[in-house]
Simulated scan of single mutants.
Amino acid sequence: MSRSHKSLPRLYVEAPLAAGLQVDLGREQTNYLLTVLRMAAGEALVVFNGRDGAWIARIADAHRKGARLAVEVQVQHQTPRSDLWFGFAPLKTGRLDYLVQKATEMGAGVIQPVITRYTQVSRLRPDKLLANVVEAAEQCEVLSVPALAPEIELAQLMAGWRHTQGLRRLIFCDEAAPRHSPVSILGDLEGLPIGILVGPEGGFSESERNLLIQQDFVVPISLGPRILRADTAAVAALAVVQAIIGDWR
């Protein structure tokens, strides 16, 4: 995107985007533009919907009940959604928000909560998770917003993996794995679709670990000699995968 556009606010919308279209905003997004950002009619921003690229739009009509945007010109073409699947055991509020935001920033294409024995949160709010995904996409110029898949039990995920994921390998961040670099292990997965699974605080139970390592599609890796908190482990795993076989190369 042009440097002159990088200073403009970014806003995710659901509506189709094309030159000449108008987009009506709800009360929440209107309040964000008019009250939080103190924008006014005629001012420009960047809008995107995860399908049609990024566009310059101007506030054509500004009132507190709902602003209207006029879409003008495309400034970025749409990028394809990442093929990287990211599964995580939900954490407590705050750290859960952080984890979902970082997964979005780090290039996950699908984000899915996985319920394990030691999962800390039993009830999730998909709307709140999606809000964190969107916020991260807005702040970090992510055009391909990750899909948020519904929560699933670990055993159910394993039983249906081949049917739903095909040849995808699942990288399992295993605290009990031998302490050596994952570079060579990940290098062997070059060109294959990849998933990453990060467990809860306290790790997977012994039976869950046994279930995982018995699957021929699961690839255990170590994240080094230190015990990492779950949200730190997620960022570390995403970084090492993106650097070795992902889109950082």
Rank of each mutant, 00 (worst) to 15 (best):
R3C: 14
H5L: 14
R10W: 10
Y12H: 13
Y12I: 10
V13E: 01
A15V: 11
P16M: 08
A18N: 11
A19W: 11
A19T: 13
V23P: 00
G26A: 08
G26T: 07
Q29C: 10
Q29E: 14
T30L: 06
L33Q: 01
L33M: 09
L33S: 00
L34D: 06
L45N: 07
V46Y: 04
A54V: 03
A57R: 00
I59V: 11
R68I: 12
L69D: 02
A70E: 13
V71M: 03
E72G: 05
E72M: 10
E72N: 09
V73E: 15
H77R: 15
H77C: 15
R81W: 05
S82A: 11
L84G: 03
F86D: 00
G87T: 01
P90W: 01
K92S: 09
G94S: 06
G94P: 02
G94H: 03
Q101V: 06
A103K: 00
G109I: 03
I111L: 08
I111M: 03
Q112C: 04
P113Y: 04
T116N: 06
T116D: 07
R117T: 14
D127W: 09
L129C: 06
L130P: 05
L130Y: 13
V133Q: 00
V133H: 01
V134C: 04
V134S: 04
V134I: 13
E135D: 12
E135M: 08
E135L: 08
A137K: 01
E141T: 13
L143K: 02
S144M: 09
I152T: 14
L154H: 03
L154E: 04
Q156H: 14
M158R: 12
A159S: 12
R162F: 11
T164H: 15
G166H: 09
R168N: 07
L170F: 07
L170C: 05
F172V: 03
A177W: 01
P178R: 10
R179T: 13
R179C: 12
H180S: 14
S184L: 15
G191V: 06
I196R: 00
G199R: 00
G203T: 04
L212D: 02
F217W: 09
V218F: 08
P220T: 05
P220E: 03
P220M: 08
I221L: 05
S222N: 08
G224E: 04
P225C: 11
I227M: 11
V235M: 09
A237D: 01
A239Y: 02
V240F: 02
V241W: 01
V241T: 05
I245R: 00
D247R: 09
